[in-house]
Design a protein around this nucleic acid. Structure first.
Length: 271
DNA sequence: AGTGCGGCCTGTCCGC
DNA sequence: TGCGGACAGGCCGCAC
């Protein structure tokens, strides 16, 4: 389930291999991911050189002089660096083959990911323009989150998982952050006090940074671009652990559904 | 404006 | 053993 740390791990993994490298061929084996891959994408980007490898939210942005490729991993997408002649596996939907023999291969079992492109400023693309600040940037402050949460009655967990409020926080890191901040996921977002907002901002940054350092979280599908798993799964404190004792107070962790998604918390430690 | 939900996908697991 | 059904999950787009 790629969230911000997994996408950033992928970005760091592929950048040294594809930056300043020229695309020789783009092979599209499945024309539809979440949305259809634009029909002229392969032709447009063939022969072009990658001039930057960036990330905005959970989107990877591969820049060239004719436009920017936008790649989203959805929930099961994996990017790997292989050789052009590496045998294709099931769900290997797209290859970017480079002139030096390096191949960037996109595999996505559930096809919730997408591959699009945009010309001009990529940040003005309709899917990126409304995104909230990056949680690891200076824009993501206690005041920002506090203001944003005013007059919002929805559950705090859903509030921080909405990319119009903060980007990159998915189900795993939302559960972990709220546990660490000592805040109940079911609380209305507007009930956050200023100090609580400050605490939440702090732990979200901390959790995401630690996960990036560990190479992301591998539960099932995710792998780093060299095929190794991420190692943050061992550090998870509540996600996937309902019914087990709380790591802080030993009280049994509760599991509920919030917005259709698994939510785990400790009644003793979170309020 | 804020909120809630359907839909897109496939692999896995559970119960009959 | 085989099969249907529930589930997981990011997030757009629609309905209220």
């Amino acid at each position: 389930m790629p969230e911000l740390p997994e996408v950033e791990t992928s970005r760091r993994g592929i950048e040294p291999h594809i930056l300043n490298n020229k695309i020789n061929k783009i092979v599209i084996r499945h024309p539809t991911l979440r949305w259809p891959i634009p029909k002229d994408l392969a032709k447009r980007f063939t022969g072009k050189t990658i001039t930057a490898v960036q990330r905005r939210g959970k989107f990877l942005l591969l820049q060239t002089k004719v436009g920017t490729l936008m790649l989203h991993l959805g929930m099961s997408g994996v990017l790997r660096i292989v050789d052009n002649d590496t045998p294709v596996k099931k769900h290997d939907h797209v290859d970017f083959q480079f002139t030096d023999g390096v191949c960037l291969r996109f595999n996505d079992t559930r096809r919730f990911g997408c591959l699009l492109y945009t010309v001009g400023d990529p940040l003005q693309h309709r899917l990126l323009v409304k995104l909230a600040p990056e949680p690891l940037s200076d824009e993501f402050t206690a005041w920002y989150l506090f203001d944003k949460s005013r007059h919002k009655k929805l559950a705090l967990k859903l509030f921080i998982m909405n990319n119009h409020n903060v980007v990159g926080v998915g189900n795993i890191y939302a559960n972990e952050s709220l546990f660490k901040a000592g805040l109940l996921p079911t609380r209305p977002a507007e009930s956050l006090t200023k100090p609580e907002a400050a605490k939440l901002v702090h732990v979200i940054r901390q959790v995401l940074q630690k996960a990036i350092k560990a190479g992301g979280t591998t539960l099932k599908d995710f792998a780093q671009s060299d095929g190794r798993p991420g190692y943050f799964a061992q550090k998870l404190q509540v996600y996937g652990k309902d019914g087990q004792p709380c790591p802080k107070c030993q009280m049994m962790l509760q599991g509920i559904k919030l917005g259709g998604r698994m939510t785990v918390f400790c009644e003793g430690c979170q309020r």
